[in-house]
Amino acid sequence: MKVKHLTTSFRSIALGLSLLLAVGCNKQQEQQAETTPEAPEEPTLEPLTSENAVEKLTAFGKENPDTIAIISTRHGDIKVRLYKDTPLHRANFVRLAKAGFYDQGEFYRVVKDFAIQGGDSDNRTMKQGAYKIPQEFNRKYIHKKGALAQARYGDERNPDKESSSHNFYIVQGNPVPLEQLRSWEATHGIKYTPEEIRIYTTIGGEPSLDTEYTVFGEVIEGLDVVDKIADEPVDGSKWPKNIVTHKIKVQ
């Protein structure tokens, strides 16, 4: 089922190779039976629930301090830094990446000049469980171009703005006029610093998402790849017409 918002839900073919060996003897040949190597086992991932997610992610985060992730696509690699002070979101992203969960995903929603959203696929076989992550809003982190953030369910079902278990997005955005930025300050009850104003008005981003979704990282290399993905032709549901799969490795 396709996803139409910054929300949850969604899209491996194992190829077996057979090997036929023949062994020669003096006056005759004995042909071995055809053998087919066993297909590699499907990676496993312990499903989490909203009741145990915080405990499990906290423990995992302490044992896995990774803060760099490489998102590989057919357009190239996007290198992101994961913030240590959004520990649950960092641990969750690292956990899913190390389990191979994200290697079954794709950028399934692309809105040019806004964001590219990934993490899921209609073709996924691995299950992660039904859980949400408590929001970890941090005033230091804004939705500037290249911000990595977590999608979530809508307000009517999620008044605490808890994050999705696996769907993430990377902001593309555009430069924002100062008067529009002032309007978002009033809407969200925040005051942007001079540096944040400079970033939004020159580099760009999407201030409408501030205080609404948890930003837990940022692109440090590969913003051009984000732009290339954002340029992909899409259908009426903003799903790229040519699949943009991703594989994610952390370090």
Rank of each mutant, 00 (worst) to 15 (best):
residue 92 N to T: 07
residue 222 G to P: 00
residue 200 Y to P: 01
residue 73 T to F: 02
residue 41 E to T: 12
residue 229 I to Y: 04
residue 111 V to I: 15
residue 70 I to D: 00
residue 87 P to D: 06
residue 234 V to G: 04
residue 47 P to E: 11
residue 26 N to C: 14
residue 78 I to W: 00
residue 175 P to G: 06
residue 155 D to Q: 08
residue 185 E to N: 06
residue 93 F to K: 03
residue 39 A to K: 15
residue 221 E to L: 08
residue 112 K to P: 03
residue 60 F to K: 05
residue 176 V to S: 03
residue 6 L to T: 04
residue 125 T to I: 15
residue 40 P to Q: 07
residue 38 E to A: 15
residue 88 L to W: 05
residue 85 D to V: 06
residue 62 K to V: 07
residue 181 L to E: 01
residue 226 V to Q: 01
residue 210 D to E: 10
residue 42 E to M: 14
residue 179 E to G: 14
residue 25 C to A: 05
residue 116 I to W: 00
residue 222 G to V: 02
residue 237 S to W: 06
residue 59 A to T: 12
residue 233 P to V: 08
residue 251 Q to G: 11
residue 50 S to M: 05
residue 198 R to W: 13
residue 248 I to G: 01
residue 3 V to M: 06
residue 175 P to I: 02
residue 30 E to I: 08
residue 12 S to V: 13
residue 7 T to V: 12
residue 25 C to R: 00
residue 199 I to H: 04
residue 47 P to A: 08
residue 107 F to R: 00
residue 96 L to W: 01
residue 58 T to P: 09
residue 44 T to Q: 13
residue 75 H to M: 04
residue 54 V to C: 09
residue 63 E to S: 12
residue 44 T to F: 10
residue 155 D to L: 12
residue 34 E to Q: 11
residue 238 K to C: 13
residue 29 Q to V: 13
residue 151 A to N: 03
residue 82 L to K: 02
residue 143 H to T: 03
residue 247 K to W: 02
residue 98 K to F: 00
residue 162 E to T: 15
residue 4 K to L: 12
residue 198 R to C: 04
residue 157 R to I: 09
residue 239 W to A: 06
residue 134 P to Q: 06
residue 243 I to Y: 01
residue 53 A to K: 04
residue 246 H to R: 00
